[in-house]
């Protein structure tokens, strides 16, 4: 694995975004993502994680602030389709809802969609599709219709649709949301495997249990602040209970275990100590 963690891929300065001119999604975000990093953006629902990923993917133009990617200013790239297409060759986004990403008649067509839009030759498209399906372990689903797939299968195919473009940066919005435990475990292993191959990954989640496996760095977004309030390695962040409570990732909950009734902080995404 040849990872240059010093080269910034994204440099974000004072980034703010609002919806309908009044609903704040992000406030004064400063962030740097380096090549080869696997960054997890940890935050509660509605803290602006998805908006940030869409801005990083050049789909939204932020209301204010500046984004630099690969050494170039890409703040307004959403308004320049030709430049945006080249940018999407290098940065791919896996959406939270796989259904919006799988719109073709078959899985194969969906995975081929990206390479085809980028104008690659038919042989190259076929090769890329085959490779992406193999990496995600979904070759046997190639001729199936997307609506026939389970949630876990859909998510793996959705990732394959992006991998087929072989982007330098993989953005993943809540990759394990709504998955059963087995599908989730398979997917977490696949994401970790992509990270070991040196892929730059930026994933958002509020599920604490997947963080140690997929993150080389964790950035915590504040529920109220809508900007990063802390960052560090996975263990340091997960050990900071006060921080997790403040970010609305842990809560205090009264519950019963047999004859014992007690209250302590926990999240529903993880097993917790009951003593």
């Amino acid at each position: 694995m040849n990872v240059n963690t010093e080269t910034p891929i994204f440099r974000i300065e004072k980034l703010s975004h609002t919806y309908l001119g009044r609903c704040p999604a992000l406030r004064d975000v400063d962030l740097t993502i380096r090549r080869g990093e696997q960054v997890v953006i940890l935050g509660a629902n509605g803290c602006g994680k998805s908006t940030l990923l869409k801005i990083l993917d050049g789909l939204h133009r932020p209301v204010s602030g500046r984004i630099e990617a690969f050494g170039e200013d890409v703040t307004g790239i959403a308004d320049d389709p030709a430049r945006a297409q080249q940018f999407h060759r290098r940065v791919g986004l896996v959406f939270q809802d796989s259904d919006v990403q799988l719109f073709s008649a078959t899985v194969w067509d969906d995975v081929a969609f990206g390479p085809l839009q980028l104008g690659w030759t038919p042989d190259e498209v076929r090769r890329r599709v085959q490779e992406a399906l193999a990496v995600m372990g979904v070759e046997d689903l190639a001729s199936r219709a997307p609506f026939e797939l389970s949630g876990g299968e859909k998510k793996r195919v959705a990732i394959a649709t992006v991998l087929a473009i072989d982007p330098e940066v993989l953005l993943m919005d809540e990759p394990t949301a709504n998955l059963d435990p087995r599908s989730k475990a398979v997917l977490v292993d696949l994401i970790a495997g992509l990270g070991r191959l040196g892929k730059t990954i930026i994933a958002t989640t509020h599920e604490l249990d997947i963080v140690p496996t997929i993150a080389s760095r964790v950035i915590v977004f504040g529920d109220e602040e809508r900007r990063p309030i802390a960052e560090g390695d996975a263990q340091t962040i997960l050990d900071d209970v006060d921080l997790l409570v403040r970010a609305n990732l842990l809560h205090q909950h009264l519950h019963r275990h047999g004859p014992i009734q007690h209250a302590h902080r926990h999240s529903h995404a993880d097993e917790h100590d009951h003593h």
Binding site: D57, P81, A84, R89, L93, F113, Q117
Partner: peptide, 10 residues
């Protein structure tokens, strides 16, 4: 957006 994100330009 999912289409644009994979290089769709119309």
């Amino acid at each position: 957006q999912a289409m644009v994100s994979r290089g769709f330009t119309g």
